[in-house]
Design a binder for these strands. Structure first.
Length: 279
DNA sequence: AACAACTGCAACCGCATGCTC
DNA sequence: TGAGCATGCGGTTGCAGTTGT
């Protein structure tokens, strides 16, 4: 729909933020509150794109942001949630107070992915929900594992893992149909103490768009959720046993991820169970 | 010490979504 | 109803710092 870019990039600063810029942004938001990102830079005296200001605030300057030192509990939760939600970083971040989607995404890509691969586990990304429906010629619309052989990441992966070919069983596996909750925008009001029910309250009611009853019996909360259906090529995805016990998610055994001595095991289990119930 | 390779993360980019008019 | 705007999201990139040779 031919929209203009979020800002004319002429004369705008890019790259790392200076302390002065941080101060200007923080002071402005403390005085005027968040929002109006497009007009914010001008009013705050910043030579930055509004989008850039928002990102800086959300990922770095916002009060309550925890930085570094992802705890084992958090790591466990991230891994579990990723197995359920895929790359829905904002959803995952919504369950980790003080953590940003960007930080979790980076942590996953740099630490957890590597860790899992080292352990011989090959988690696979869940199908893209947002970009899948439309066929785009753009490279990012249909990412390929080895799309850019010159990239460092792919080099690292190939170096450390020579076992990247699918087994015969995997190749022959039938398509599995799974139901994923629609990625919704998560605000900071969500915390670990919030029920998952609240996660979906306020989201657009669009059950008519998807005949959910046709596919599964859903909890009451599901009536507020869009439940798109995906046909997965890989049987390792979202396979639930008849006992409703989760066996495999994202291609790896979730039992590996049970924390032995966590102060928050119960909380993690509770959060995890809530998601299982929804799925 | 110097250089190359690697790592981690902040920031950027394009697109989706919801809202208003 | 559709165009345009504002915002949010996920993928990707760039680069500074670190590690290896």
């Amino acid at each position: 729909m031919g929209r203009s870019p979020c800002c004319s990039k002429v004369g705008l600063r890019r790259g790392p933020w200076s302390t002065r810029e941080d101060t200007l942004l923080t002071n402005y938001i403390q005085e005027h509150g968040e929002g109006q990102w497009r007009s914010l830079p001008k009013q705050a005296g910043l030579l930055r794109c509004g989008k850039s200001c928002r990102l800086r605030w959300m990922n770095y300057l916002r009060p309550g942001i925890k930085r570094g030192n992802i705890t084992p509990d958090e790591e466990d939760l991230i891994t579990r949630l990723h197995s359920l939600l895929g790359n829905r970083w904002s959803l995952i971040a919504g369950r980790l107070p003080g953590r940003t989607d960007n930080e979790i995404k980076n942590y996953w890509n740099t630490h957890l992915l590597k860790k899992l691969k080292t352990a011989g586990i090959e988690p696979k990304d869940l199908p893209k929900q947002r970009k899948e429906p439309k066929l785009k010629s753009k490279k990012s619309a249909v990412p390929k594992p080895n799309d850019k052989p010159e990239k460092k990441e792919s080099e690292k992966i190939n170096k450390g893992n020579t076992n990247d070919s699918k087994t015969v069983e995997e190749e022959a596996a039938p398509k599995i149909t799974v139901y994923l909750p629609k990625a919704i925008r998560v605000s900071s009001v969500f915390s670990r103490s919030n029920s998952v029910d609240s996660l979906f309250s306020g989201s657009s009611s669009s059950s008519s768009e998807c005949d959910v009853g046709k596919y599964a019996t859903l909890p009451e909360t599901a009536s507020y959720i869009d439940w798109p259906m995906f046909e997965l090529e890989d049987a390792n995805y979202g396979v639930c046993g008849e006992s409703q016990e989760l066996e495999f998610f994202g291609g790896f055994d979730m039992s590996l991820l049970h924390s032995e001595s966590s102060n928050h095991v119960n909380m993690l289990e509770q959060v995890y169970d809530e998601y299982l119930q929804l799925l």
